[in-house]
Design a protein around this nucleic acid. Structure first.
Lengths: 217, 217
DNA sequence: CCGGTTACTGGAACAACGATCCGGTGGAGG
DNA sequence: CCTCCACCGGATCGTTGTTCCAGTAACCGG
């Protein structure tokens, strides 16, 4: 998607329709989930014919790529002086956005090269460099933080947001029924009411940041 | 899927066909990717009609759930005495399996309740408990390790395995063209030839394990 | 004012998909 | 020999992403 030579902007044509399509796609994904996102349904919401969309957008995958990047505009780029505060804020807001749009979890398996994602990734690298993190720790730190937040949001969105209540209950019962086969998991695993996703996330993030900080000479 | 009361096993009927379907599905996913996995194509490979599959399997999603769980049978459950060695081995093999079947990355957004996944999750909890990790660190540790490995494999599979060479080259050129806009990212980000995914993964894993170990009284 | 280029629209249609209906078949058990 | 039942698969339905192509409306140089 982001690799296609955008022949539209070159001619100065207003990408206004494109924007409206993406906005409506996000709204539709939010309201009904990714399965219900159809070119026809999207067009109907926009009051146009379904085939008209293909003038503004090459394929449906492009709509998804654009929608995925669009939601990251809600992640502010921190201005903190202290690197740890800035990184913590960025990662936290990143996670919050992924969880606010749970359908994004299913889209994380595609290349993210949109401007919003790139700008925030650039900030992450810049913050780490500014903190004095050098290779090979730099790449490991940026990867680790990104992968950690992506994995956390993916898992939480899968269980708490995308799965409906009956699925969760059935899963709990399923685990309960096999309590003897997976004793440790049944006693302490997810789906036990006691787990606090936010707290666990921050603990893991702290471990990562401590490890990164220790590499600074 | 795992929540459906399996009326087949109850009657003692041989689930042999089911197993063949899953094996062939994994082979098909491996050979042509998830987009090309079709009930018709899968049936054709098995030498049957497409509708016959629905006798052994409720929906296509069931096939995907079964295939996803099936590949984790290749992850051995460690027998190390030392907890760090066991956890490191499990997480490493987990990652290796996810990368050997890159299509699995796109399936991670669904509830994983298969027996293979559960058994290995149970081992992870048991190993951490045996090491002396207690709540609230226990949940954070298990989540953190799982999420880290899932995120790492997802990102690497996206870029190095699922994206074809031309996509990667186009992405590199795309980044190069905007080098001034994302200076830190262009200089140090992924897609720079110097990055070593394996090394970065192990560094991040070490940071997490160090943090977990520090919580042991 | 006009002819034509250009930006944009959308009905019709196509191939492919997941899934269901329903009429089969073949062998085991009475 | 009859009956039952696990198992099979052709025909078919509704829906999907995408393309073809015949339009329309606005602008622009003459």
């Amino acid at each position: 998607m982001w690799l296609r030579s955008s022949s539209r902007e070159e001619r100065g044509g207003p990408p206004l329709s494109r924007q409206r399509i993406v906005e409506e796609a996000v709204a539709l994904l939010d309201a009904e989930g990714p399965d219900r996102l159809t070119m026809r349904r999207l067009a109907e919401r926009l009051g146009t014919g379904s085939t008209t969309l293909y003038w503004h957008v090459k394929t449906k995958d492009d709509v998804l790529d654009l929608a995925l990047d669009a939601i990251f505009a809600a992640v502010p780029i921190p201005e903190d002086q202290e690197w740890r505060a800035g990184v913590t804020r960025l990662i936290g807001d990143w996670r919050a956005t992924l969880l606010r749009y749970p359908w994004s979890a299913g889209l994380l398996g595609r290349p993210m090269l949109g401007p919003n994602v790139l700008a925030r990734s650039d900030f992450l690298y810049a913050a780490l460099i500014g903190a004095g993190v050098v290779e090979p720790h730099l790449t490991a730190a940026a990867f680790g933080l990104s992968n950690f937040v992506v994995g956390s949001a993916l898992m939480q969105a899968t269980w708490l947001l995308n799965a409906d209540a009956e699925t969760r209950d059935a899963a709990r019962e399923h685990m309960d029924h096999q309590r003897d086969r997976y004793p440790a998991l049944a006693a302490h695993g997810p789906l036990t009411a006691s787990d606090d996703w936010d707290e666990s996330f921050e603990r893991g993030l702290t471990w990562l940041l401590d490890g990164i900080e220790a590499t600074i000479a």
